[in-house]
């Protein structure tokens, strides 16, 4: 490990005082795919984005953490206190402390909005019906009154289904939100509202509330991402606080004739007739000395795309 990388991870350790989730030697095989995470911690009090290509293992990992899938090897520690085996006991508070939103198989097919509310009351003790109804109205999920709640969930649009799931978890008292692609079905305005809701959730927790969400909409969700975990082929290929990652990497832009010289020092590169653009480890910038280049601080989206491109099996000639 180079000095630069050592100091980088040292800084990460200092910032991550407590973890909401700690994973050790997680292994899960599923339809020819293997999730393999030797060690991963999700910092408490922050919002963490889980980023990766389709099929990278994000949903599988979130399912393990939410307790939707129980057949895996390894150990998960919740809130520095409870192991995953303890989570299944009815007296254990872990599942009560977690709010989870998932994919298409979330609610039973014939449920109405009203039934979803009734079931939530039974399933979770700290559920605020008034807050739920307020969210139904604020997010314009259904019209107010009995008729609105009688609407079948299967008749709601994908965006409204997601809003309903979000209303369900935001009406509960939780310590950790696990959200599987919450932004994907939402329109741009609602994505903005979602970011506000997530930020408000973190701020209301006084360092105790944590969010872990997967997303493909990195640019839209960047302002609500404190920590990022990038996955490829079931493995974590990069992680860190966003500000640290932006220091770790530098965006370089140069003339097209310098592209071949610069390429070996770059994490990823994209070239055209006018020039090249690539991401370089900041500690390797000296390898590009003498080239006519511009350097910029990268966005999270640029970092993610570069890291994913470096590890992807997708090859475009």
């Amino acid at each position: 490990m180079t000095e630069g990388v050592k100091s980088y991870y040292g800084r990460e350790q200092r910032q991550m005082k407590d973890s909401a989730l700690k994973m050790r030697d997680i292994k899960k095989k599923f339809r020819g795919f293997t999730l393999d995470i030797p060690q991963l911690e999700i910092p408490k009090g922050f919002s963490t984005a889980l980023i990766g290509e389709n099929g990278a293992g994000k949903t599988t990992l979130l399912n393990l953490l939410a307790g939707i899938r129980l057949d895996y090897k390894g150990e998960i520690t919740f809130f520095e206190k409870w192991k995953d085996a303890e989570r299944e006991r009815e007296t254990n508070p872990v599942r009560e402390m977690i709010g989870y939103t998932g994919g298409g198989n979330y609610y039973l097919p014939n449920w109405t909005v009203g039934q979803a509310e009734e079931v939530t009351k039974l399933l979770f003790e700290k559920f605020d019906s008034d807050k739920f109804e307020l969210l139904l109205e604020q997010l314009q999920i259904v019209e107010r009154g009995i008729g609105g709640k009688a609407k079948k969930i299967s008749e709601l649009s994908d965006g409204n289904k997601m809003k309903l799931m979000l209303a369900g978890i935001f009406a509960r008292e939780t310590q950790l939100l696990i959200l599987d692609e919450p932004a994907s079905p939402l329109d741009p305005l609602m994505r903005d509202v979602l970011c506000d809701m997530l930020r408000g959730y973190i701020e209301s927790g006084g360092g105790e509330k944590t969010i872990l969400f997967s997303t493909h909409n990195i640019a839209d969700m960047e302002n609500v991402t404190d920590y990022a975990v990038i996955m490829e082929h079931g493995r974590v290929v990069e992680r860190g606080f966003v500000e640290d990652l932006k220091e770790k990497y530098t965006l370089v832009k140069g003339e097209s004739e310098d592209a071949e010289i610069a390429e070996p020092a770059l994490v990823s590169i994209s070239k055209n007739h006018y020039g090249f653009e690539g991401l370089c480890l900041t500690e390797n910038l000296n390898q590009l000395a003498g080239l006519d280049m511009q350097t910029e601080r990268p966005t999270l989206s640029q970092i993610c795309v570069a890291v994913m491109r470096q590890n992807s099996r997708i090859r475009l000639s």
Binding site: A66, G67, I68, R87, E88, R89, E90, N92, R95, E96, I98, Y100, G102, G103, G104, N105, Y106, Y107, L108, P109, A116, V119, L122, L123, F124, G168
Partner: peptide, 16 residues
Amino acid sequence: FHGAEYLKSSVKGRGV
């Protein structure tokens, strides 16, 4: 509909 993920996300889901 193997999922019923909402029920499974609570420890009381099976009982309900």
